[in-house]
C-alpha cells in the first residue's frame, strides 16, 4: 500500500512501487484530466505538480513521490497562478484539439507561480518541453502574458 496526497486528499493505493504516477492517477485514483502522450517524458502531456514543481508523471515511479503533494489539472485552478492561467486560457481560447492542454496549463501555472512576470525567453525555456501538435504556441505565450498581468 502506498499513501499519496493528491489534490489535498489522501489516497491509499495498492499498486506496484514502480508503477508510473500517471497510471495511478488515471486508472486507480480515477483522475482522467492528465493525459498520456509519449510515455518517455518528451511531450509534456502528462505534466503534474509535485509540491508545485512540474514533473512528467508518465515516467515517475509512484514510490518516489513520497510525502510530496501531487496536484493535477483537476485542482490547479485552486491556486492563484493556476486560476489566472485557466482564466487567460479561456479568454484567449488557446485550446484547439485540447489533448496536450492539461500539460500546458500545468507547466504554465508552475512557471507563473515561481516567476510572476516572465519574459518571452523565460516562457520559451519553461514551455519548450510541452509539445502541441495543433501549433497553439503563440496563443499559449499570449495567454501566459495576459495571466501575468491579471
Amino acid at each position: 500500500m502506498i499513501t499519496l496526497n493528491v489534490n489535498g486528499e489522501t489516497h491509499r493505493v495498492d499498486v506496484p512501487p514502480d508503477m508510473p504516477l500517471l497510471w495511478v492517477l488515471r486508472d486507480v485514483v480515477g483522475l482522467n484530466g492528465t493525459k498520456f502522450g509519449c510515455g518517455i517524458a518528451q511531450c509534456g502531456a502528462c505534466t503534474v505538480h509535485l509540491d508545485g514543481k512540474p514533473v512528467r508523471s508518465c515516467i515517475l515511479p509512484v514510490a518516489s513521490v513520497g510525502a510530496r503533494a501531487v496536484t493535477t489539472v483537476e485542482a490547479v485552478g485552486q491556486s492563484p497562478s493556476g486560476k489566472k492561467i485557466q482564466e487567460a486560457w479561456l479568454a484567449l481560447e488557446v485550446v484547439q484539439c485540447g489533448y496536450c492542454q492539461s500539460g500546458q496549463v500545468m507547466s504554465a501555472a508552475a512557471l507563473l507561480a515561481r516567476n510572476p512576470n516572465p519574459s518571452d525567453a523565460d516562457i520559451d525555456a519553461a514551455m519548450a518541453g510541452n509539445i502541441c501538435r495543433c501549433g497553439t504556441y503563440s496563443r499559449i505565450r499570449a495567454a501566459i502574458k495576459q495571466a501575468s498581468q491579471a
Binding site: 517524458a41 518528451q42 505534466t47 512540474p54 512528467r56 525555456a125 519548450a128 518541453g129
Partner: peptide
C-alpha cells in the same frame, strides 16, 4: 536541450 532534455 530546452525541448527534449530540460523538463527532466
Amino acid at each position: 536541450f530546452q525541448g527534449a532534455c530540460a523538463s527532466c
